[in-house]
Design a protein around this nucleic acid. Structure first.
Lengths: 226, 226
DNA sequence: CGCGGACTATGATCTGCGTCATAGACGGCA
DNA sequence: TGCCGTCTATGACGCAGATCATAGTCCGCG
């Protein structure tokens, strides 16, 4: 069932970059939204598709994926409620295609805004520009950190990912091992081995489609030292 | 010898994000600049230093570096004339420290603008915000690409870096092998071996502190296929 | 001109982790 | 309830690339 416009506007007004807009502007953005639902594993768009929209996660989780030249798939990021995607690195103007693939990680509802509507606001509203800028900046730092993580050993990478997810989801992380592997930029098998090691040390509990963090601090120090 | 103010203003008006400012604003920014010179290997700032300034490369080259937990150093990027640094990922507000180290890669002149001056303009001038946003967006795409590169094999990574540098510097790339290694996120020795292979295939010429690209196209296809 | 330090180069060895193979466990669906 | 696909798990093997060792070359500087 579709959302009420009040619900939509309340949602929009609380997320970047729309939080800087006036009530009237929010209402206008809301009137241009389209909703779409996806099931686990369904593709929202593919890398290389012609890009015409900006997307927002309303509920569920969306994985932004890339494929290496040898065919391994790895995850750029995992986005939850209120997060934008398919936008930021296209802003420069030279982005006619999506640079990554977006896949639903479970039952997911997303909102879609046509580029021309989004850009129209981007041009008109200084608040909007400011919001986008803040978003970009934060994401830039994020990706920088992830890039640095790529230089570390697999155990460190897995620990880093677990810590990031802990901060978002709390002690019980609702991700499969495969998803952890893709986020860490490694294989399923290696991820198992690392998680098994961590479990033996009592750092976490490996459950079905979940991981429960037991000793956050020890995990944290792992990322600093080794 | 210090630059004339006309020279400075001409320079500023041609680079992001100042190109969006009015003549008067440019002049004002110019009046707040300080110049600084560095020799090869000299540190401009260290990761973790309290950050109070935004920097622009006036001439020369600046390497933005990180250190892995095992002590290897690798390069986030290599910046040339007109490029900003020490700024973008601090914009969110939660960046009191520089997240990376900046080192001069040769005789270098940089301009320094105090944060409060920069932020003052950022708040006052919509054009400035737009410029910063464009910068952020472009850099975001850049870093995303580099992150993906990190998933590839070393030969592909080295080839990718060479192609990037080719686009900036032309067929003769004025970088030492060590710098190539740091940009590729690998060791000096491995980089030598890869470059030797490339040279045997006639793709390039390995010179002293330089690399001359001979077959750009073949190098390019290397990054797509293998 | 000759010294010393950065740069370039190559071989030998070791290892983290990717790959391949096998198999049990859980859960959705008929 | 039983089947099948996804998820979890572990062992064996091989290789890309890091590490260690050694040495020649270029160039700035006294």
């Amino acid at each position: 069932m579709p959302l009420s416009s009040a619900e939509l506007q309340g949602f929009l007004s609380r997320i970047q970059p729309f939080s800087h807009l006036t009530r009237g502007e929010i209402k206008e953005v809301g009137s241009h939204l389209r909703e779409a639902g996806y099931q686990r594993g369904q593709t929202i768009y593919n890398e290389g598709d012609a890009a015409d929209s900006v997307w927002v996660v309303f509920e569920g989780r969306v994985q932004i994926l890339k494929y290496t030249s040898e065919g391994r798939t790895f995850a750029i990021e995992s986005l939850g409620r209120g997060e934008l995607f398919g936008t930021l690195c296209r802003l420069g103007g030279n982005g006619k295609c999506y640079p990554c693939t977006a896949v639903a990680a479970g039952p997911t509802k997303v909102l879609r805004i046509l580029d021309r509507v989004f850009l129209d606001f981007y041009v008109r509203s200084p608040g909007m520009v400011r919001g986008v800028c803040a978003l970009c900046s934060r994401r830039l730092k994020d990706v920088q950190d992830l890039r640095c993580m790529g230089q570390e050993s697999v155990p460190v990478r897995v620990a880093t990912i677990l810590i990031r997810l802990f901060h978002v989801h709390g002690p019980v992380i609702p991700f499969t091992k495969k998803e952890i592997a893709e986020l860490s930029g490694t294989t399923l098998e290696t991820t198992f081995r690392v998680l098994t090691q961590f479990q033996k040390k009592g750092l976490l509990l490996s459950l079905h489609k979940k991981i429960q963090i037991k000793k956050f601090e020890d995990l944290k120090t792992l990322t600093d030292t080794l």
